[in-house]
């Protein structure tokens, strides 16, 4: 069943991670930037599962579980922060939130 070489899975994960980086740098909506961060975390999960298969143990899959918990907490807190910002400034554009900018 698992006859595809692990390198191709790692390449897919790397390409998805790079797309996530580009999206987080290019887009301007805070929620969309969060979605690209989730895409990066997903790509890292694929890498963990692939390394778990390469090494022949389930430890990598447990790290995926931890990444999942951190991603859930991060998404919840981040979306609440975005909600508060939108309530005060009526905009989800990250360029409008420049109070701490030098």
């Amino acid at each position: 069943m698992t006859e595809v070489a692990p390198g191709y899975y790692l390449a897919l994960a790397g390409l998805m991670f790079s797309i996530g980086v580009i999206g987080a740098l290019v887009r301007r909506n805070a929620i969309v930037i969060f979605m690209f961060i989730e895409l990066m975390l997903n790509a890292v999960n694929l890498m963990f599962v692939t390394f778990s298969r390469i090494r022949g143990s389930v430890d990598g899959q447990i790290l995926v579980f931890f990444v999942l918990v951190v991603a859930a907490a991060e998404a919840v807190v981040g979306l609440a922060i975005i909600l508060v910002i939108v309530r005060r400034r009526a905009s989800a554009n990250v360029d409008d939130v420049s109070l701490l900018r030098w």
Partner: peptide, 16 residues
């Protein structure tokens, strides 16, 4: 980003 993708893909396909 393209540079990053090329680097990760090269490492994944060669040194795994």
């Amino acid at each position: 980003g393209t540079l990053l993708a090329a680097g990760i893909t090269y490492i994944a396909l060669t040194s795994v």
